[in-house]
Design a protein around this nucleic acid. Structure first.
Lengths: 193, 193
DNA sequence: CGATTCTTTGAAAACAGTCAATCTGTGTGG
DNA sequence: CCACACAGATTGACTGTTTTCAAAGAATCG
């Protein structure tokens, strides 16, 4: 629970008192998920965004041919959820499941809006979260459209070593938009340079 | 100038008075750019984010081999700038230039922070802008990693017909991450279906 | 019309995907 | 402790897609 408190403080310039945090905390729902359990299934509305206290989560999209495409991975102190579905309450095209046994703190959009009005520090945190998310996705797009598979993997390994360690290669491959076979060959190739 | 006022009202649930708008407006700098002129050059700090009043802008990244990769396109009522550089005042890796003669309203990050404190409606607009930006980039990533070039073009044409109309094919090709040659062949192919 | 910008095309090469088989490591139950 | 199952990684042969490069063909504009 304290992890969220630290997170809010880290991303906010405005102090949050213990009492304020108690009230904020009361709007979050604690949830434990076992490995392979779903947090969100395709077609359902993503009612909650979740802060990952512990564990590792995977968000993916299943195409017409039944292939899974990983769009996001999250570990401790990251947020997970389908933003569009959460905001608009529209059915999601994504599936989110637990890759490891995980613990989450979930909150609805409504509650975030309400709490943001009460606590500017929370609003600021949310804004900064959005901001860094925007910056990160911009980088990912730049990488996806302009770099080779090899370069994309190298960049990923450098930027997210912890994620690399906790998910199998075929999940990472999907995240960077290539097949597990190609990633295997790239890694082999990379050793000789 | 009125376009920005309409934009703020559209994205904010809180009313903005004419007086408030006057004060907000006073923090924006009007700028006119001729076709091909730079708004931002690689290596410079992106001190301003800009609201496009008129015209069309292109943001791209130049790789080691000198090839240009379009990361963003913007027309009327869109925002343009390098988010990371603007927030952190770090040198940008991107170049932004005017594709058509354009008119912009520019604002610094500092001023946005200051104005957001004075006007909740502006803060809300910024948040929603971030939100829809996040949703849009998420879609673009999903598309980039999981769809074929053909599908990516079809999706783009459907979602942004106006942009398609105003930029040449080779710019669009770069935006969706393929070469102009490949896009030309895809379009030819598409006609026979 | 002449210059410039943009698009199309062909042929070859580079790159990535597919599928099936094999290999490797890990953990479980007998 | 072994045998086995299981998840994941690797490999080879093949196919398919996209890039590259150079040349030629539209289209647009002053």
């Amino acid at each position: 629970m304290e992890a969220l408190f630290h997170y809010i403080r880290k991303y906010s310039s405005i102090a949050v008192s213990e009492e304020d945090f108690e009230l904020i905390k009361s709007h979050f729902t604690y949830k434990r998920l076992r490995k392979k359990q779903y947090f969100l299934q395709e077609g359902d509305v993503c009612r909650y965004f979740a802060f990952v206290l512990k564990g590792a989560m995977r968000q993916y999209y299943v195409d017409e041919k039944g292939m899974e495409h990983v769009v996001q991975l999250a570990i401790e102190n990251w947020w997970v959820g389908d933003r569009e579905s959460w905001v608009k309450l529209s059915p999601s095209r994504y599936t989110i499941d637990a890759w490891e046994n995980s613990e989450l703190l979930m909150i609805s959009y409504q509650d975030v809006v309400k709490l943001s009005q009460l606590f500017p520090s929370l609003a600021e945190m949310m804004r900064k979260m959005d901001e860094s998310n925007n910056i990160a996705t911009q980088k990912r797009i730049t990488s996806a459209i302009s770099h080779s598979a090899e370069r994309r993997y190298a960049d990923f390994a450098l930027e997210y070593p912890e994620i690399l360690r906790r998910f199998p290669q075929y999940v990472i491959a999907s995240y960077i938009g290539i097949t597990k076979d190609t990633l295997s060959r790239i890694r082999k190739q990379g050793l000789n340079n």
